[in-house]
Simulated scan of single mutants.
Amino acid sequence: MTAYMIFTRESTQDQAALDAYRSKVRDTFDGYTHKVLAANGTQQVLEGDPAEATVVLEFPSLTAARAWYDSDAYQQVAQHRLKGSRHRVVLIEGL
């Protein structure tokens, strides 16, 4: 069943680290089936606090999403994101 991973950037702490993440993250998807459904587009906040940015990824399954997220390649690059910003990351199974 399709799964969606949603990254919400709440705040930036280190722009250089975040830039390093952005420059390297694309390569971590090699070999993983996915679609980028939304990435840092215009947001209309209807409830709650605004996010700095939001990215929505689609994967064929929860297992496939976790395989990418838990991969050595992504975890090495994710260290830049973790240093550079506060994020909320949610993985949800589709209907």
Rank of each mutant, 00 (worst) to 15 (best):
R22F: 09
P50C: 05
P50Y: 03
V55E: 02
Y69C: 03
Q43D: 03
G41I: 02
F29W: 05
F29G: 06
T42G: 12
Y21C: 03
A51W: 09
G41E: 01
N40Q: 07
V56A: 02
T54R: 12
V55D: 00
E47Q: 12
D30I: 13
Q44N: 12
L57N: 01
T33E: 13
L57W: 05
V36I: 11
A64E: 01
Y32L: 14
A38Q: 06
T28W: 15
W68V: 09
V45H: 10
S71D: 04
D70H: 03
Y32K: 15
A39H: 00
A65N: 03
A51R: 10
A39D: 06
T63I: 13
K24P: 02
G48E: 01
R26N: 06
G41N: 00
P60G: 01
T54Q: 09
H34G: 02
V55R: 03
G31Y: 11
H34C: 07
G48W: 01
S23L: 15
A51T: 11
A53P: 12
A53R: 04
A51Y: 10
E47M: 13
S61Y: 01
N40K: 09
F29H: 08
D27P: 11
S23V: 12
T33N: 05
L62H: 07
A39C: 10
G31V: 15
E52Q: 10
A39E: 08
K24T: 05
A65I: 04
L37K: 09
H34D: 02
A53H: 00
R22E: 05
P60M: 04
A20Y: 13
W68M: 14
Y32C: 13
V36F: 04
D70F: 05
L62C: 03
S23I: 15
F29I: 08
A64Q: 00
L46G: 06
V56W: 00
L46N: 10
L46Y: 09
S71V: 14
A64R: 00
Y21V: 07
Y21M: 13
F29K: 11
A65K: 05
A65C: 07
L46D: 03
A51C: 14
D49W: 00
F29D: 01
S23N: 15
V25N: 07
Q43R: 06
Y69V: 04
A64T: 02
V56L: 11
S61C: 00
R22Q: 11
A38H: 10
V55I: 11
V25H: 09
A53I: 03
A67I: 03
W68H: 14
G31N: 14
D27H: 09
L46A: 08
T54K: 11
L57I: 04
